[in-house]
Design a binder for these strands. Structure first.
Lengths: 336, 336
DNA sequence: TTGTAGGCGTTATCAT
DNA sequence: ATGATAACGCCTACAA
């Protein structure tokens, strides 16, 4: 009777997932012993071997739900990204992956929509993630409040928000570097294609500070556009039709490429400079000069910072800055 | 004593997560009553109101781990993608999102590496996801075996694998359409930049069948390259330096763009055709003629198919084909 | 309609 | 070193 009961248990296991209890029965030990074995507790060499064999045979893996339930925390990190169709973002995710030891990422696309971003934060919390990494171009007050209210470890990227642990790109330094380079080009009339600082302060404001300072002695026009290729193309065309420019600086590579398209259509050949790190720069003709940030590195730092925040709960706000470098290509080359 | 115990419980809750038990105490009912309320069981209007108020006040959300543990299944779907820096993939993910009612996606990047793909499958299983959606360019025998062995609902996309529920793109039809169009261009000498069918059968084989058939009367050269821009550029340059072509067909937009770069460098101006749906086509100059698949639609169908497989366990293998359309742009335009 | 009790798989405490 | 037992939060017979 007892034997057949155990036997049927073992049989019935075949199609379900084998549990710590099954292992215990098969090894004729208590489940707590198995648990200790699994977690590096003290077990005699003899039983260790016995259990080890069975665990391997049965391909046992612990039930993560039970673990999380018990431990009151888990190793799933919610990652909210503003968009997925962007090299910058996917490089950053690759960086997260790269450093990751044991966490799994729950990636949520916010589609550049603050409402969705907020919804994502709430949904992630209701799903009991162990923490949140938020990549963002813009923090609304609602989102700030939600982040502040959350008991979870949270790290953000993209904006230099003083209240949150964060990793940011050296936008200001990038602008200064580009500014210095621009001076060596001696442009006569410059078109700046920027985005509103309300939408993305790091880009719209920080990135352009140094550029504008460098253009103190040079005539320039600033036109506000947005991150979309079509919009940039349209806005650039309007501006370039109205006046003649010999240098166009886009807030992002994408915007610069939009301008290139317009320049091509208008048979104009100004020089172009972009920002970011995309294959854009090398797929367009001429290849685009660009200030490139290492988003991959940013991702790595982001993960490290998150782990630090989660495991050490630092009392002071952490801030990590990722630098970049100017890569000069044909679009500011001699033939222009 | 009892009062203060309850009181301290309520206080202590402030920083933790409120549970069904807390709600029950506050409402002076049993936790099973609260559970019934939450799951639409029978509760008197009176207690329903009482509980409702408290649940809302406390912003109670159930602990998903406890739920999953109890229910032995959960609403997390593992999605394995070959890469993230691709419009095709992110459009597909957007399609998944679009249809999604209540599932959450655990997105795993396999970085186009079969080993990682296999590892991802195993890891997802050990994390007890409720199913797997596999976007893939290539199924190894090991992966086939892992999929077959899995008890989970699984749907794949990308390859026309007869043993698995799948959503595929109409690569063959796309090739035929392009073939028919190519005939109208009356090219003298065509360069086909393809990828090895071993790496991606749907692309390397299916996609080019129709094209080659259409070129029966036309001289053409087939060069094998890979999906990377740099490789394509390199291989195209070699081929285009060795012979003169008036039409170049790339297995993907990216490959076609690589060829464009080489053509530009060599001062050649053939016509170009690509495959896929990317902003490539509209960022390069000239804009690229391309056979475009709706990956967004594919994502939607993929989710629907998955849900069907999960909820209805169909006995016959399901197969969904997503069509595309030829979009003619400047790269095959009159000025060439 | 409501409450009691048991169990999902795991870990931790406490005896033995 | 080992095993019995309770607990994590939830759901669900079953009883009242």
């Amino acid at each position: 009777m007892t034997t057949s009961r155990v036997f049927s248990d073992i049989i019935s296991v075949m199609n379900k997932k084998v549990t710590i209890n099954d292992i215990a029965k098969m090894a004729n030990v208590a489940k707590s012993t198995v648990s200790r074995y699994l977690n590096g507790g003290s077990v005699s060499a003899q039983t260790r071997l016995k259990i080890e064999r069975i665990v391997q045979e049965q391909r046992y893996t612990p039930n993560t739900f039970a673990q999380s339930l018990k431990q009151q925390t888990n190793h799933t990190i919610g990652v909210i990204v503003p968009r997925l169709d962007s090299i910058a973002q996917s490089d950053m995710l690759r960086g997260l992956d790269e450093c990751n030891q044991e966490d799994t990422f729950l990636i949520v696309n916010a589609y550049q929509d603050p409402k969705r971003e907020l919804a994502a934060i709430e949904k992630l919390q209701s799903q009991n993630v162990g923490g949140i990494i938020l990549l963002t171009a813009n923090l609304t007050d609602e989102i700030r409040a939600a982040l502040t209210a959350s008991p979870l470890p949270i790290v953000i990227q993209g904006q230099d928000e003083p209240d949150f642990h964060r990793v940011i790109m050296a936008d200001q330094h990038g602008g200064e570097t580009v500014g210095a380079y621009v001076k060596t080009l001696h442009p006569k009339n410059v078109l700046l294609l920027n985005v509103n600082a309300e939408i993305d302060h790091a880009v719209g404001h920080d990135r352009f500070m140094g550029i504008k300072a460098a253009l103190a002695q040079t005539p320039y026009t600033e036109v506000m556009t947005d991150f979309k290729l079509d919009t940039a193309k349209h806005d650039a065309k309007k501006a370039m039709a109205a006046d003649q420019y010999d240098l166009v600086i886009g807030a992002t590579d994408r915007i610069a490429v939009g301008a290139m398209q317009s320049g091509y259509a208008l048979h104009q050949k100004p020089q172009y400079i972009g920002f970011g790190q995309s294959f854009f720069s090398e797929t367009v003709t001429p290849n685009l000069t660009s200030f490139e940030f290492s988003f991959f590195e940013a991702g790595k730092q982001l993960y490290r910072l998150f782990v630090k925040v989660r495991d050490e709960s630092p009392q002071t706000i952490q801030r990590v800055v990722i630098d970049g470098q100017l890569v000069i290509r044909d679009s500011t080359g001699p033939q222009h």
